[in-house]
Amino acid sequence: MVEQSIYPKDQKMVITTNQVNFFYGATQALFGISLLIPAKQVTALIGPSGCGKSTFLRCLNRMNDTIPHSRVEGEILINQQDIYAPGTDVVELRKKVGMVFQKSNPFPKSIFDNVAYGPRIHGEKNPRRLAEIVEQSLQQAAIWDEVKDRLQANAMGLSGGQQQRLCIARALAVGPKILLMDEPASALDPKATTRIEDLIGELRTNYTIVIVTHNMQQAARVSDYTAFFYEGNLIECDQTPKIFTNPREKQTEDYITGRFG
């Protein structure tokens, strides 16, 4: 069920998934997910807890690889390349597909070292170049002005919202094309949430963003396309205004009107 019609004709697609099944041991968590992720747009994945939206997101940068006894079937193409094909370089994949987690997870190191971590492990040694990358990333993540005078301070001393923006900066520092966000604002207060949402609005000019959220208003505010998951199935995907005003499926309507979930 790959729907091309909901996207503008000239819209480029970055990720194509074809009949993706996912298993935790014997338990199937995803059932035949076929979804297109458009370039430089924000796609929101919504659905009740346990519907598989996070599992699906984590398939896109193979973070599920770390879970013992898990298994993926089907095809996930990023820029026409099957990321589960044998011989795929997971390091290269994760450089291209950055991830921001639900709970901010800065390393217990300095702000500078947090952002420089990615470039360093990928071989960047030149201190001037590193400093450039760090500044650029922090600016893109709209946190530069708050931390520029204390780059050597420990990142654990930042507020929750700042930590999350630092984590976004850290992800950007590796130079990804795609950014996966797993409920990035669910642990933040409303003001910090607004800042993250504004940031997503700014980042969409340069990055393809896939965001998992259980907050429907948030999906409505930040995304261009919304995909609704329910019990491991993709129920429907459409332009965000359409999903929230005139969904095709009864289940979607029930969910967004708050009848369940």
Binding site: T66, V91, F101, F107, Y117, I121, A171, V174
Partner: peptide
Amino acid sequence: SLKNASLALGASHLQTIFL
């Protein structure tokens, strides 16, 4: 969450352990 952050940045298992 720290190990995941490192892996998601493209670090290998060993890099994650030692760094």
